[in-house]
Design a protein around this nucleic acid. Structure first.
Lengths: 338, 338
DNA sequence: TTGTAGGCGTTATCAC
DNA sequence: GTGATAACGCCTACAA
């Protein structure tokens, strides 16, 4: 039963292959200066013994821990899931492990947790998603520690770290212009959570499109949400209760767009005939659930890929940026405008 | 800038506190036989130096790694998220780290990944969710290695490990009986994914309720889904296309229930007036999105709590079980039955 | 109640 | 190309 003791070590492998432990280590780490025949012999021994290097020992002796961490807190489980999945895929390919936990951006121990990751776990790098991307205390801590990290959709300071993002303002502007192009003059807008920089960026795009079309901005048509279903739903209720309600509503996330649609449904309004609904589609939720929705597609998983690539690439241009393309997906045609 | 070197070690702390490193270690691990004054001095030194024990060294020298792993693959991101969150909370309290990654139950490397967790990371324990809970190869591997693990909603072999679950058959029976009690004689049923043991358990409950009410089982009213939105939607389409369609549809998950509702909506059917829809609510999705839904509530997060408690508790009765209560949540009244 | 010696399994350094 | 040997930071044993 003490099968535990069967766990092979480098020493076992070296004995099996008839070489020194250092040579085994070289093979394991893909270092140069190993005879091809020697290498083959070692690899055979590794396979024969089903050997797996002990992560703790590796981390202790070496400079690397082969672990990176994802700091991700988002109202949408779909977002978290997609982000984790994307990064995980890349980590597997790179032989690195991803530490991912649902963090709580409001937690008083957030800074402490991150410090723990750096000091106790000794992570090789971190990936930050909004809104932590823009927490000065966190940025300062990581910079001081000299830890590599990349940011997803940061709010600013693009020179600080490698980062990946889409043109949120441009996307929101394109969508708003699309709605205006369909004949809508009163376009409602549901903002995202105020903690997220993207919320402001998307709102700016909305305003820009109105201005470009010569439509006066009406503050009554804008409601603040928090990137979740419930807030989208109540924002839509408020907008549709207006004396002069909008003929289209554009929500800053798909969860909120789903909320808008539910509100319309509750009122017996047909979409898109009686109300056009559009939304950012950070995840897959609303697009799947509600075909008539028109969305800005920005696959979160791709963001994960890009972020992981930036972190794991050897070339470490500290200012590298990956701007991903967004896509305007029009589903269902839009009927007459009130 | 080499702030890295400021990372304190036990030696630093021992010097600061004027004691030996062993004493520091004792304080860190809450061992007995430490003078209260000594303890206080050490703790002060730890705080002063912002010392955090190196996880790798701890794991290498000791027997524990202070890490547990969650093996969770589920069609619903909400489920994964809730499960992770629940377990995470308990881990934080216990000073243990949770390794959680979206796994792929079909991956050819699954067994290898798990072996890696055991051999390379040396995890203190594992939590398995369906369907991996019932993979013989995995169970055998873990048993052979002598690793502690608990299972969530296992399909059988309850004596094998501690586990947590609800009475799925009982819940499905209660829900079906509820629908029958409302006057429905033709109740459609959407099964879950065949890989999950819960699918069969729920189906059995459905059949039992029909039998108890003296209603003949009609195979045409049963469709197989895969626990996701799309399958629920197409299953509902098939059921509603029948010459004699059901007046109520009971889906084995909330994602599928949402799909059923979307199908009803597409057809212009009002819920629950023209079609009663019920579902298991493993996550929060459908219940939030669609108030008229009647659900079996079985908070996934609570399952995570229970699973983590079982794994982290010192008392390790190998056969311990935690059966959680389900709850029948009736939202919206049900109108006339076709 | 406290301290000393040794080793955990790997990588880094420096010889050969 | 390859191999000894000394760390890495902590815990387990044993002693004092």
């Amino acid at each position: 039963m003490p099968e535990q003791d069967l766990r092979a070590t480098i020493t076992d492998v070296s004995r099996e292959a008839g070489v020194s432990i250092k040579t085994v280590s070289r093979v394991l780490n893909n270092e140069r200066y190993v005879g091809s025949e020697t290498r083959a012999r070692v690899q055979a021994a590794v396979a024969a013994l089903n050997f797996r290097p002990n992560a703790a020992a590796r981390s202790l002796a070496g400079r690397r821990s082969f672990q990176i961490a994802l700091i991700c807190d988002n109202p949408s489980p779909y977002y978290v899931y997609d982000m984790q999945s994307g990064i995980r895929d890349r980590c597997v390919a790179a032989g690195v492990r991803m530490i991912a936990q649902p963090y709580d951006r409001g937690s008083p121990t957030l800074l402490d947790d991150i410090e723990s990751l750096v000091d106790a776990i000794n992570v090789d790098g971190l990936i930050l998603t909004p809104p932590v991307t823009d927490y000065p205390a966190v940025l300062e801590l990581l910079a001081k520690r000299g830890v590599r990290f990349v940011r997803v959709s940061p709010g600013g300071d693009l020179d600080l770290t490698p980062s990946t993002f889409i043109d949120n303002a441009g996307a929101a502007q394109a969508m708003t212009a699309h709605l205006i192009g369909l004949g809508h003059r009163r376009v409602g807008f549901v903002r995202g959570h105020p903690d997220f920089a993207t919320s402001g960026q998307r709102f700016e795009g909305y305003r820009a499109a109105l201005a470009a079309a010569g439509i006066a901005f009406d503050a009554a048509l804008v409601r603040e949400g928090s990137y979740d279903f419930a807030s989208g739903s109540s924002a839509a209720d408020a907008l549709l209760d207006l004396a002069a309600p909008p003929s289209a509503i554009f929500a800053s996330s798909d969860d909120m767009a789903a909320g808008v649609l539910a509100a319309a449904h509750r009122r017996g309004m047909r979409v898109p005939e009686q109300l056009s609904v559009a939304g950012f589609d950070d995840t897959a939720l609303a697009g799947v659930v509600w075909p008539p929705l028109t969305t800005i597609r920005q696959p979160t998983r791709d963001m994960g890929y890009a972020a992981a690539d930036l972190l794991l690439s050897d070339a470490s241009d500290p200012h590298e940026r990956r701007e991903l393309r967004f896509e305007l997906v029009v589903r269902g045609s839009t009927g007459p405008v009130g």
